[in-house]
Design a protein around this nucleic acid. Structure first.
Lengths: 217, 217
DNA sequence: CCCCGATTCGAACGTTCGTACAAACCGTTG
DNA sequence: CAACGGTTTGTACGAACGTTCGAATCGGGG
């Protein structure tokens, strides 16, 4: 029976992993239960023994992703107090997790608002907690006189890190440790350095006409 | 007849704008032609007078987006030689365009690989040309001894800028000009500043265990 | 051997999708 | 007024979708 539990969990995990890969490749709505049935070898109706609906399947994947990501971050931050090292831990954890689970992370980034009701609320709560934890780490080393809007700073960092599933290729690009180095330093230097050093003349006005909409009226 | 042309183009533009908003809100595959019919007031089959297929509709939106974005950038860069000011023009053009056409840009970012065949090739060619133009602008002010991988730098900047459709709210957040200031300076300072100034001790090793996959084997 | 619960399956249901097509509408031209 | 090309529509088709359900299958304990 404990043995049965074991095989059940294993099979569920296998289904989730396969489904995540398919969702990442084709997108959640574009992928069909029949695709997952074909890829896993489990019959169409057999899948519904492991989840109640397609949306719950997506939820199980996303929830497991965020839970693991959060657990890893909490465990790492727990044993470190230096703000700079905490920041580096955060960046490296985030990037390593992304690279190691790129398919799942693409699903997480792309289909966050595909979940409705309780499913969406649960995952969004975890997303908010993660964002807040990272924001606090950032705040702890914020320079006093910086003119950069803190919200802009947080999402600039997240943008840099989360965008990698659009271009990063583990076989072609630099290893994760250097990636974390580059992105972390790139952000840190920009975030910490004083105003108007190497970028004098930056703020000189440029005229980029508005052109509010691309569709001519 | 010139009058007829006028109403035809106007109606097409109206359909494209409405469709872009629906695609942005529900996603391309999730949105149905019937949704667009309902929103535009044009009958289901009437829409097919203006485009040959749902995929061509997506193509028309994406192609028009990229074309306008590219034209704007080319026109701006044409009359400026200073590398720093060229960089600023690029950033401001990109961000302003994104903010002014956030719905369309979300479609562009999300559904770039939803196009197949010639549609996909055409749009991807424009994407590549845009990336190359921006990469060249960046290269022109690259510091000689930087240790940051150039590919990482380019996509870090793109990530920062493209991510905004996930969080930027024109009514709540800073105006576009300050957004361009913040992101541009954040990147520039990090990109231009020398090694190991305010970030001493950054490279001290941290142990983030690999944990290659989130699914236990 | 048989039974029982856990697991798996084939077949079908109702719905929605993208698209095709022939007919109808409409302002202009001859 | 009749004929015409450009525009619009109602309707229907075949395919694919998520989901359901009752039966079949299986392995272990009596």
């Amino acid at each position: 029976m404990v043995e049965a539990r074991r095989t059940y969990d294993d099979k569920l995990a296998r289904i989730l992993r396969t489904a995540a890969a398919i969702f990442a490749e084709k997108g959640y709505h574009e992928a069909s239960i029949r695709d997952i049935s074909r890829a896993t070898g489990v019959s169409l109706s057999g899948l519904y023994y492991y989840f109640g609906s397609k949306e719950e399947l997506l939820f199980l994947i996303q929830d497991h992703c965020f839970t693991t990501l959060l657990e890893n971050l909490d465990r790492l931050l727990e044993q470190e107090t230096d703000p700079l090292r905490r920041f580096r831990l955060m960046v490296e954890n985030h990037l390593r997790f992304f690279v190691n689970n790129m398919k799942e992370m693409k699903v997480l980034s792309h289909e966050l608002d595909s979940l409705t009701g309780d499913f969406g609320q649960t995952v969004n709560a975890k997303k908010r907690r993660y964002t807040e934890t990272c924001g606090a780490v950032l705040q702890a080393l914020a320079p006093a006189g910086t003119a950069i809007d803190p919200r802009v700073a947080v999402f600039a960092l997240f943008g840099m890190m989360n965008w990698i599933y659009n271009w990063y290729n583990p076989e072609r690009d630099v290893p994760v440790s250097k990636l974390a180095d580059d992105l972390g330093q790139l952000f840190l230097r920009g975030y910490l350095s004083g105003v108007g050093d190497a970028t004098a003349g930056w703020s000189s006005p440029v005229s980029v006409e508005p052109s509010p909409s691309i569709w001519r009226t």
